[in-house]
């Protein structure tokens, strides 16, 4: 069977099964279990309505439970066992991990990523949002800066691998260096700073995201506040920092935390560019290097990432509960 046909067939089965469940389960509830007819019609409708939310929710709750709640527990449990998974070693994986120089390097690098990438993306996003706000061609500019959002991390890494290439006939940066009479350098081999060159890729992708949200927030600022500031003689820079930014601090925080969480997930860039060599290791790609080899160590790393994310998670839930009626 041709792969295309096979693909289409499997798509039909998967999607059809899903539609079938909702349709059939509601039909069963309304026609067979508690039919809206006969002597008990009122009671039947009430009962059916008490069950229906759970019919609607069941697939979602099952999927969330299985794919996101269970793994938190499952990973932690697995991380207490040795490599083969047959011996309970308490926190042995954690202690040996903290003793590993590569893990410490990954942890420190990850800290750098978490500090630099969200800050730079949010800053640049805010800058572009403000600059393009009154521009006649602002939407085109925004659209082009937003574009990397559609590009995969692998694709983006290739794009930048080309820019960073040490061959001055391929890499733009080395071409510029050579043009000004310098010697070509291998950018991915520059100790310490190569981390920042990798971060550039993620900043390049995420600035558009920050820009879209912040530009929405800037548009939402009540115009009276700005008018009042102009009348009081404030310049554009003052208006931006003293009137606009304080009013969108909440949104800036949302953007910041969203990108922070993303940073802790992305292993693709480091994996494609350096495979974690040359002192560029980060936690997600450190974990991938143990995946399929030592599940105990891999789950321990994953759990460390979870612990780092935990404060953000709690903050999100608190915020959401505040907003709910």
């Amino acid at each position: 069977m041709s792969p295309l046909l096979q693909g289409v067939l499997t798509i039909l089965i998967g999607v059809g099964g899903c539609v079938g469940y909702f349709y059939a389960s509601n039909l069963f509830l309304d026609k067979v279990l508690y039919p809206a007819s006969g002597p008990n019609i009122g009671r039947n409708i009430n009962r059916a309505n008490r069950i229906r939310p759970w019919l609607f929710l069941m697939p979602a709750v099952l999927a969330l439970g299985l794919y996101l709640v269970y793994p938190v527990v499952g990973s932690f449990y697995r991380s207490l066992f040795n490599r083969a998974g047959d011996e309970f070693i308490w926190f042995g994986n954690y202690t040996s991990m903290f003793g590993d120089a590569e893990f410490r390097e990954a942890f420190v690098n990850n800290l750098l990523w978490v500090l630099v990438v969200p800050a730079m993306s949010t800053f640049l996003g805010l800058l572009v949002a403000q600059l393009t706000d009154r521009l006649s061609w602002g939407n085109i500019a925004k659209s082009l800066i937003f574009m990397p959002m559609a590009i995969s991390f692998v694709g983006a890494s290739l794009i930048w691998k080309m820019v960073y290439s040490n061959n001055p006939d391929i890499g733009l940066i080395n071409a510029i260096i050579v043009f000004f009479g310098g010697e070509p350098v291998d950018i991915m081999l520059i100790p310490f700073w190569n981390n920042f060159f990798l971060m550039v890729i993620l900043i390049w992708i995420q600035t558009g995201f920050a820009m879209v949200i912040l530009s929405g927030a800037l548009r939402g600022i009540p115009e009276e506040t700005i008018e009042a500031a102009i009348i009081d003689g404030a310049g554009p820079v003052q208006i931006f920092f003293k009137i606009k930014v304080p009013q969108i601090v909440g949104t800036i925080m949302v953007v910041w935390t969203t990108i922070t969480i993303l940073v802790l997930k992305v292993f693709d860039i480091v994996y494609t560019m350096t495979s974690g060599n040359f002192g560029t290791q980060i936690l997600p790609s450190y974990m991938m290097s143990y995946m399929f080899r030592d599940d105990g160590r891999a789950t321990a790393v994953a759990f460390v990432i979870m612990l780092v994310v935990l404060p953000v998670m709690i903050w999100n839930i608190v915020q959401a509960r505040k907003e709910m009626r």
């Binding site: 794919y67 996101l68 793994p71 990973s75 697995r78 802790l264 891999a298 790393v301 994953a302 953000v312």
Partner: peptide, 12 residues
């Protein structure tokens, strides 16, 4: 929303 994907890989 924020549970890291990495956590799910091994158990699942």
């Amino acid at each position: 929303l924020v549970v890291p994907l990495q956590l799910a890989l091994v158990p699942l």
